[in-house]
Design a protein around this nucleic acid. Sequence first.
DNA 1: TATTATTATTGATAATGTCAATTATTGATA
DNA 2: TATCAATAATTGACATTATCAATAATAATA
Lengths: 164, 164
Amino acid sequence: MSIIYPSMQHMNDAAVSQRFEDSLGYLVNHLTYAFRQGIVHRCGEAGFVITHEELGVLVLLRREDGATQTHLANTLAKDKAVITRLLNGLVRKGYVERRPDPVDRRVVRAFLTTSGNGAIQCIHPILMDYVATAIRGVTQDEFDATCVVLRRILSNLQQVNEKA
Amino acid sequence: MSIIYPSMQHMNDAAVSQRFEDSLGYLVNHLTYAFRQGIVHRCGEAGFVITHEELGVLVLLRREDGATQTHLANTLAKDKAVITRLLNGLVRKGYVERRPDPVDRRVVRAFLTTSGNGAIQCIHPILMDYVATAIRGVTQDEFDATCVVLRRILSNLQQVNEKA
DNA sequence: TATTATTATTGATAATGTCAATTATTGATA
DNA sequence: TATCAATAATTGACATTATCAATAATAATA
């Protein structure tokens, strides 16, 4: 039950009897599942034994090397404890190293090692290729409109959640 | 790394430097996270201590009572072993019972018990209410268009995955 | 300075996921 | 019909991820 099974037409009764397979939740779930399976498999084929969540960290660090753990947690939608342990794993694999922030000594920043950088540089084109096939047949406008809707829903959820 | 971090504009270089927060993956991840937190919390407040995945099973059984475990696995995008264990949990909680299919004796079907039915009948309005606030400000057309795009992407992924 | 807030870690445990092996049954085929 | 292959579910063994409270270290504020 990752997300929103009922589809939009839940407002009236007819909709309650709508097919589960037509709901946003179904789509999001399956999308997530398929993407995970696919990308992890492709990375494995390329010689990178890595979990999907570890991959998320590397992808983010590729863009924002030296991110703080709080930032990683917020951006990846995870508890800070989860980030601590994901980083432990990546450090063990030699992909990441931690360095204390020079200014604020409470803060720890995560950096790609040479090896980690090599890995993500190698993985990135694989990811790009996979994404390209994923969005085949979707126009930029359609894609943008989709993001707008999802962002709206997300914003609604976050708003109502924080009130509780 | 649940899903597709890069956003559409990955095709050119400018896009590669786009913000992580603008990607479809970011949206889907956070959407999933926020929805989970919110609905589980609301169920808990109503006296139902239930996990998000268990909730998915109940929601599906509400619609398709007597579903086979294979069907549950396919619909919820989970391994059959996961379904076996989710059902074990729900049986322990008294919400679900298993009955063998009368025709094909390999097949086991999952049914809501009286208690399980009561629970989902009580939870359903909570879910509906939560969903209603989630999609506030989204028109039916926008919602439908979003589903079309996501369905397209899902279809692309499934197609390319099965070839591998 | 004393208090409060923030950042990260740790411990303990629960929840999910993966994947191969096994059992029971059914369907197909020779 | 006897055999073999396919299917449905369970189990075992384990990895991964999540949750949540407690703690330590540091920083910010009154």
